[in-house]
């Protein structure tokens, strides 16, 4: 397993470089443009000048290599300088719309996205785990029926609707929670923590419903599969208690699809939640990405998409390792 991990890690480097090239070509080919948002009073000649100013007149491969240099060489070196306290003036990856370094923009957005999307993932899993176990244990029992109904309705109600509904009920009618997420709020004491929690309640709820629904469905299905497997019968026949069967054998094997789903969901934390972030004005990484796409901000979208790709590759590797730990018979060599 260890050599397998090393080999996969080593192979990730060329893979990621290939992915970054494909992403670049895709974004470059996409017809959105950095001058699209300008008022129409700005004449075409000026627009052309602006495009040239952004380097858009250079051929694609030059622009790709420039990004590579800025991202793979300049950014790490600048970080090194910053850590050691030195000054650095290497050109960083600059956003076209904000005229600011992309990495700084991402760092600014990361806290709120981690808070909201990350927490919703945890809450979703915390709800899904017991729900799925109880549902599978008593298939078609009351908990299973109610759980199935709620999770499926939760999944089919889209966040653009649920979010607005919650704002109308809890912000407009009841006035319990703010509809605007204040990203400048600092948690310093008990009181400010309650403010932070209040502004997180609605976006986290919307996202948790979705996550819980998805996790619990896969988990329940997989537990049901496992419950009917031979080795479970054997364990039962040997007189093992139901609790030990469930937690010792079934859960372990049922975790495989859950690990897959979670390993796919964790990178999504970094991608943010576009709709939910917009509805509650969380302004995290999801809205940064969508704004970048809408304003044709190639360096921003490229950098975000690439960092996302790194997480995808990394977590898929972790998932493969986790399969091996959950089921020692799985081997890749």
């Amino acid at each position: 397993m260890f050599t397998y991990t090393l080999r996969r890690l080593a192979f990730s480097v060329p893979l990621l470089i290939a992915i970054s090239l494909v992403i670049f070509l895709l974004i470059d080919l996409a017809p959105n443009d950095p001058t699209a948002n300008l008022p129409l009073s700005i004449p075409p000649e000026t627009r052309e000048e602006l495009r040239k100013g952004l380097g858009l007149d250079a051929p694609s491969h030059v622009r790709y290599l420039l990004w590579c240099k800025q991202f793979f060489v300049n950014e790490p070196l600048n970080l090194l300088d910053w850590v050691t306290g030195g000054e650095s003036d290497r050109l960083r990856v600059q956003s076209w719309s904000a005229h600011a370094p992309v990495v700084d923009l991402i760092a600014e957005r990361l806290p709120q996205t981690l808070w909201v999307v990350g927490l919703s993932l945890v809450i979703g899993a915390v709800i899904a785990l017991p729900l799925a176990i109880l549902s599978a244990r008593h298939q078609y029992g009351r908990i299973d029926q109610i759980g199935t109904f709620i999770t499926m309705v939760g999944f089919s109600v889209p966040s653009f609707f649920l979010g607005v509904l919650m704002i109308i009920v809890f912000s407009v009618k009841l006035g319990w929670f703010p509809s605007i997420y204040d990203t400048t709020h600092r948690v310093t004491d008990w009181h400010s923590l309650t403010i932070q929690l209040r502004q997180m309640v609605m976006p986290v709820t919307v996202l948790s419903v979705f996550n819980a629904a998805q996790f619990s469905r896969y988990m329940r299905a997989s537990m049901l599969e496992t419950l009917h497997k031979d080795f479970v019968r054997t364990a039962r026949a040997k007189g093992m208690t139901e609790r030990r069967v469930l937690f010792g054998h079934v859960l372990r094997h049922a975790m495989i699809p859950v690990v897959t789903v979670v390993s796919l969901a964790i990178p999504q934390v970094f991608a943010g939640a576009i709709v939910t972030e917009q509805v509650f004005r969380v302004n995290g990484l999801g809205t940064l990405l969508i704004a970048g796409i809408q304003s044709g901000d190639v360096p921003l979208v490229q950098t975000l998409a690439f960092l996302f790709a790194v997480l995808i590759v990394l977590f898929n590797l972790l998932a493969d390792i986790a399969y091996g730990l959950l089921d020692p018979r799985i081997r890749y060599d």
Binding site: L15, V22, A305, F308, I312, N316
Partner: peptide, 8 residues
């Protein structure tokens, strides 16, 4: 699959 998952 990784590639498709990464594409914006």
């Amino acid at each position: 699959t990784d590639l498709f998952l990464s594409l914006p």
